[in-house]
């Protein structure tokens, strides 16, 4: 059981909505179409690889027959999934303080949602409604979202540089090379294992290592 895969942490939050989540559906429909600016904070914060919100009506719970009972729920539930960088307990302040009202829209009027500021009640709400991940996998535990994006920029430029290098004079090459590293001066920082996410995660990892021997 671990929510941690290197630099990525999984979060699974299930919360009941009010009025069948109709307002939430509207917000999620409107947000990317008319309020792109609201999402710019999330892009600038750049702590998320991928995230999603899924509003699930009682009838949406799959029923595959073979005697499976039909769910009888009154609420529509909002299920939030994210893959983000850092420790949620450590970074909750960063999310709350930078996105504030934006976060409030994402859980708009969910039952019991206390708003994202003040932070302590928000933190307690998310923790109380979170489900630990049994198996979590990242294709790149050594990379944060920032790193994946920087890597793509470097690769795109290198394809060009490497494609033309052999046909250039040393002087021409120098100029193209200098342009490349100037453009990517902070895209080429070193990658390595994450700093520890928490002492508990570190202990789990150490125990797993011992088991392996």
């Amino acid at each position: 059981m671990s929510n941690v895969a290197g630099k990525a942490q999984a979060l699974n939050v299930w919360t009941p909505t009010r009025r069948k989540g109709i307002e939430n559906r509207i917000i999620f429909w409107v947000l990317p179409r008319f309020f792109k600016k609201k999402l710019r904070g999330l892009q600038t914060l750049s702590l998320i690889h991928y995230a999603r919100w899924v509003i699930i009506a009682p009838k949406d719970f799959p029923n595959l027959g073979e005697g499976q009972p039909t769910e009888e729920l009154r609420h529509h539930y909002e299920c939030f999934l994210s893959n983000f960088n850092g420790n949620w307990d450590q970074y909750i302040d960063s999310f709350s303080m930078s996105l504030g009202t934006g976060l409030d829209m994402l859980w708009f009027k969910n039952v019991g949602f206390p708003n994202s500021v003040p932070i302590e009640p928000f933190h307690a709400y998310i923790n109380a409604n979170s489900i630990p991940t049994d198996h979590y996998y990242s294709a790149y535990p050594l990379a944060a979202s920032n790193d994946v994006k920087a890597a793509q920029r470097v690769r795109d430029s290198l394809v060009t540089l490497a494609g033309s290098a052999s046909g250039m004079s040393p002087k021409q090459f120098r100029q193209a090379y200098d342009d490349t590293i100037r453009k990517h001066q902070d895209d080429i920082s070193r990658l390595d294992e994450s700093v520890i996410v928490s002492l508990a995660t570190e202990a789990v990892q150490n125990q797993a290592r011992q088991e392996a021997f």
Binding site: R52, V54, I55, A139, Y140, V148, A151, Q152
Partner: peptide
């Protein structure tokens, strides 16, 4: 499967092989 209501991409949508090659190149080129 249940339908997503809102999907957020804070990274990119390249094939995984390109992402991994990018990470390799970022490190080696640095």
């Amino acid at each position: 499967q249940v339908s997503n209501t809102f999907l957020f991409n804070g990274s990119n949508d390249r094939p995984l092989a390109e992402q991994l090659k990018g990470l390799y190149l970022k490190q080696e080129f640095g």
